[in-house]
Design a protein around this nucleic acid. Structure first.
Lengths: 168, 168
DNA sequence: TTTAAATAATTAATGCATAAACAATTAACA
DNA sequence: TGTTAATTGTTTATGCATTAATTATTTAAA
């Protein structure tokens, strides 16, 4: 939490309401991350690993192909290999080779993984509630509205950026 | 940007306004990061390296001790070693050994580093302006206010968490 | 049917973060 | 003075992300 005072310092060269909004956004996000990290710490699980677990938790009993997981998480397959390695080491997930197509590997959540995921999901909701009690309902919905507008604008900016400059 | 639709999916298990606020926050942050990343890309510089450069840019001509940089960025010294390594390879920074205390090493920004930093700072302000044009001034200040309240609350939560439970 | 191309996962190299162990140097003090 | 402490920075091992190269297998084509 101390880090935030320093962050403000290192962005002292930023002036104007636009840049300040962005910096405040970064600070707030960093604080939220830190608080959640503290909560998550005792479970020895990262955001990514938790995400992957939830995906498998919501999948069928056969689990999911590694590349399917990568597609859903929008993350490279190399990354999935590593995440699954670590989750497997924790006994939360197992690999099962597909017999009809031996290139494929299904990742399946274990019993231990299921109860673990349920526990963390429960906690996550609890923590979110605690944290967001800081704001009243009006502030929360106002915040959501402004962020939605920002998101839409960003998507549009990106879309425009991607349009190649036609010159002829 | 596509990633965001997926993010919403993987957090489908999250319900209630509190959790939703947090997810929207994460999404918005991720979008901002992505847009800035696209901008930064052509400069071959990460957030961390840029931060470090700005710190040296604002320091005296003698530069700063590596440990001082670590203190300011609230980052481990091992990390600083690596960042300086990479910045040095790019010719933006150089190491100078202190003669009176041979344990110390000063990091000094080079001429190339200075003009580079000025260029990127200028761009950063420009980009921030472009992006935050999405919101009007009223929305920007409202957003800042709500985030400030959230930040204060988070700091307080952390402070309370740190107080050991006295039992006697 | 043999060869070429596509697909699935892993490995290797790199960036950025951490903690822990280490070497070198300086400071403290008995 | 000589031994112990503290400090400064690097190295090593690990986690999590990327891209590019590699292996194994299946599919398509010639």
């Amino acid at each position: 939490m101390e880090r935030l005072k320093r962050m403000a310092e290192s962005y002292a060269w930023v002036e104007g309401i636009a840049s300040r909004t962005i910096i405040e956004f970064k600070k707030t996000h960093e604080m939220l991350e830190e608080v959640f990290e503290n909560y998550f710490q005792e479970y020895d699980i990262s955001d990514s690993k938790f995400n992957l677990l939830v995906i498998l938790y919501n999948s069928s009993e056969k689990g999911l192909m590694l590349s399917e997981i990568g597609d859903r998480m929008l993350v490279t397959k190399a990354n999935i290999t590593g995440l699954i390695d670590r989750l497997e080491k924790q006994g939360l997930v197992k690999r099962i080779r597909d017999d009809t197509d031996r290139r494929k590997i299904q990742a399946v959540i274990t019993k231990k993984g299921i109860s673990f995921t349920e526990e963390v999901m429960r906690k996550y909701k609890e923590w979110s509630g605690d944290i967001m009690n800081i704001l009243n309902d009006d502030e929360k919905s106002r915040l959501i509205n402004i962020m939605s507008k920002l998101q839409k604008g960003l998507v549009q900016m990106e879309a425009e950026r991607r349009i190649p400059h036609v010159t002829a």
